[in-house]
Design a protein around this nucleic acid. Structure first.
Lengths: 346, 346
DNA sequence: TTGTATGCGTTATCAC
DNA sequence: GTGATAACGCATACAA
């Protein structure tokens, strides 16, 4: 473990003043070539690492981060995101980082645009956003890029944009669901159920479906059927009941979003809980059915961690001038009734 | 989001100097009662939070942390611990925290004591330790307590000591294994296999076995047999082969430590890969059998994160004077062939 | 082209 | 009892 060198040390070693060393470090010119070379050699030799914290102590700015996410009171999935955001803020409490939060209706593109307008008016230094709507998000992100405002996104990747993205590999999570269902029910037919969430998360669902099917395609000797069923939110119960009755040989169901509890409720009322069920997300409704055995596995998308990491990267960019990772895919957690508890704590 | 108040602000508000405010904050006396009350009132009113980083900038000490863990070259399980330790160090690179690492032979209590002696001689400020041997660790930890040196432990909890502990709920992980085996094979007999690791991790194995059995005890209508088999490391293959032949009706096996790959190898050579297999830890041998399907699930004990968190808590104690959590149990990850990859990255 | 002084928030050592 | 003041590592305005 080596000694920590400071600018002062280097200045002494080079026989110059701190100011000169600083000019070299920041390429600010006005340094004699021979002196510059000498200092630079020293810097690399001892592998000088500036004390980022002391640097920021001086550059004592107030940073404002705009946060644009769906309103948790309209969809409980988003509730834990604020936990993650507050964790990141607490971790950097030594710096003056403030957030302005704008909550939008996840079913309403106009509301997204409205709150984005308000966000824009608040003049944030950087932005953390869940860009639910592909088309609208594309133009919004383009605008921020033209304004040179960095944006971190999570949950939804807007591939048309260069904005940083934190999320999961949806295709792979579909494969995980398939593997799980195949593990617990290797013979019968399978169904992929897309329950429409009012707002279109079409890409999410498609990727998960593709991954799911790819797993079974890779299997040799599996020739059972994989059904697909799309259900509009309002008609969920009736349409699902019909679907179940039409396919009595069904042995496993994969619900591609957080609405597995709807299917679980139906399986119970129809006395078909022997059908295996895999879904997403640790909503309390889902966890209840996980604990009573109607849901077999839940895949955890870790929205809390997504928000935490997204904000952390933005803050580190602001205060330490670190680069924001373009894309980070979190590990995908498999949850059953026995390991769920620790994942629920804040 | 409120303004960040500094000592200077408070001094101005109270109409006193920074020095006086500092004396109040640190209870250093020599302050008139009325002034003290006034300042104290202000402090609570505005909820003053000192800037821990600036504080440490001044208290510019070099901290030394002694690390005593098993030698990864003697058991690959420990290899990722150093990754976690280095992550924690990097995160606090702004502070002068140094480690002295002592590696001991995990099969040799005398070697543990020897290296602990060397550690003691190095005069660390605090210690991070994997206390593999209960008896020896008990007296070692007692000694450190009498010297008033804080110790963080991970992997093994020494319940006789008050040292901080990072790990997992072993009992619960046994229940997870049971739930997984029950999910993928609900009918047949089950076996718990303890493969002796040369060093006695008796408590680990017992807790996992208890948890495993408790799951099946809780099940109504399950009356199949749960066998237990203890195997000494050197005799693994022969004894296991006999065990398998003696119990042809076996449908699932739970290996209570990281040696599931031994069982997997045997299942392949005996053409019994239809037997379900659940084990621990993402050693490359295990991951290979996970990927080819012989192992169905691995339970991830996350040694990297255990080491990372253990060290992080110690560093935060040193530099920020934070309290070290007495006990922290990490969530338990369920791993199959489809979600394993992101868990392998450093 | 270079060195020095100042300040960030906190602590500690001085004088008064 | 109290208030200046220096110092930590870094950045920068300004003086030389």
């Amino acid at each position: 473990m080596m000694k920590k060198y400071t600018i002062k040390d280097i200045a002494q070693l080079a026989g110059v003043s701190k100011g000169t060393v600083d000019r070299v470090i920041h390429n600010r010119g006005n340094v004699a070539k021979d002196v510059e070379q000498k200092v630079r050699a020293l810097l690399t030799e001892i592998n000088y690492q500036p004390n980022l914290i002391a640097r920021n102590l001086k550059n004592n700015k107030v940073f404002t981060i705009g946060v644009l996410i769906p309103d948790p009171s309209l969809d409980p999935y988003w509730a834990v995101c604020m936990d993650g955001i507050n964790s990141a803020l607490a971790e950097f409490s030594a710096f003056d980082v403030r957030i302005n939060t704008f909550l939008y209706d996840p079913t309403d593109t106009a509301d997204f645009l409205d709150h984005n307008e308000a966000l824009l008016q608040s003049e944030p230094d950087v932005i953390l956003m869940v860009p639910l709507f592909y088309k609208e998000a594309t133009s919004v992100l383009q605008h921020y890029q033209s304004l040179n405002i960095k944006v971190g996104t999570f949950n939804n990747q807007i591939t048309s944009s260069t904005a940083s993205f934190i999320g999961q590999d949806l295709y792979q999570s579909g494969r995980i669901a398939a593997k799980l269902l195949h593990s617990i029910s290797s013979t019968g037919d399978m169904a992929i159920i897309h329950i429409d969430e009012k707002y279109k998360n079409a890409v999410h669902m498609q990727e998960k479906e593709k991954g799911f099917k790819s797993y079974y395609d890779d299997l040799k000797g599996f020739d059972n059927t994989i059904l697909t069923c799309k259900v509009k939110y309002v008609e969920t119960e009736d349409k699902l009941r019909d679907f179940l009755n039409d396919h009595p040989q069904l042995e496993g169901i994969f619900v591609t979003n957080s609405k597995a509890f709807h299917v679980a409720r139906l399986l119970e009322s129809e006395n078909k809980t022997q059908i295996k069920l895999v879904g997403y997300d640790l909503l309390s409704d889902n966890v209840n059915y996980l604990n009573n055995g109607t849901i077999d596995f839940l895949i955890h998308q870790n929205p809390r961690q997504q928000a935490y990491l997204g904000l952390k990267y933005l803050i580190e960019h602001l205060v330490f001038d670190k680069q924001i990772p373009e894309k980070f895919l979190l590990p995908i957690d498999i949850i059953n009734s026995e390991n769920v508890t620790p994942f629920l704590r804040p």
